[in-house]
């Protein structure tokens, strides 16, 4: 046991020496101050966007590759944030989901006053349907996602969870935490679950 701790300490020290070399230490308060100072004319109700929660702080500090203990803590914290619809139904309307997947509208500084609901912009990063050839590759292809999983209830819930809070599944994922950060509503998330998991959705055709 003592040996294991000693080895772990060595590994830890070793990896930190490397990151100190690659990444010169900058005081986090200085970084925060530079961010705040860059937006001097910002309206008060935007100021919360400068503030990082614990998960953002840790993912930034570890450049999205958190050590296991940190990753576990993020996962636990983010899992606790997921809220479910009162009636327990997780699948909405895939046609609405497709519209949301196409839309990148919302929360940009040109989107005020809001003219329509926020989009999920899924196609920016994921392949979803054969019909849409303009898709990004930051995230994995989701073509046939529900079908290859036999549309199982467990996978349906997992998809809901991932959209609601991606980091509950993958700590420091690039994907927004759509539900936890109130970008999308529960009903919108249900529509996206339908897009991915419904047998009649073009994702599974």
């Amino acid at each position: 046991m003592r040996m294991a701790v000693a080895v772990a300490a060595l590994v830890f020290a070793g990896s930190c020496a490397v990151c100190a070399q690659d990444k010169p230490a900058v005081d986090a308060a200085k970084v925060d101050a530079a961010v705040v100072a860059a937006f001097p004319s910002v309206p008060d109700d935007w100021k919360s966007r400068f503030v990082q929660d614990e998960t953002m702080k840790e993912c930034s500090a570890h450049e999205n590759v958190p050590p296991k203990a940190v990753a576990d803590a993020i996962q636990k914290r983010e899992r606790a944030r997921i809220e479910y619809p009162a009636d327990g139904k997780l699948v909405g309307d895939w046609k609405e989901g497709e519209k949301l997947a196409q839309s990148g509208y919302g929360l940009r500084f040109t989107d005020y006053p809001a003219r329509r609901a926020n989009g999920g912009n899924c196609y920016a990063c994921h392949q979803l349907t054969k019909a849409e050839v303009s898709y990004g590759t930051i995230g994995p292809s989701l073509l046939g996602y529900g079908k290859v999983r036999n549309f199982s209830a467990a996978d349906t819930k997992a998809v809901y969870d991932k959209i609601y809070d991606s980091q509950a599944a993958y700590p420091c994922s690039n994907m927004p935490r759509f539900g936890a950060n109130k970008v999308l509503t529960v009903d919108q998330i249900k529509d996206l679950v339908a897009l991915v998991m419904s047998p009649d959705s073009p994702v599974n055709k």
Binding site: V35, R49, N64, L107, R177
Partner: peptide
């Protein structure tokens, strides 16, 4: 400082510069 800002995640989408520019061969749309 620029390095730290490049990886700093923030805002309602948790985005940093590194979200889109942290890997090879990726695209948006």
């Amino acid at each position: 400082l620029g390095h730290a800002i490049f990886f700093r995640r923030q805002g309602p989408h948790d985005f940093a510069c590194a979200t889109c520019h942290g890997d090879s061969g990726k695209r948006i749309r």
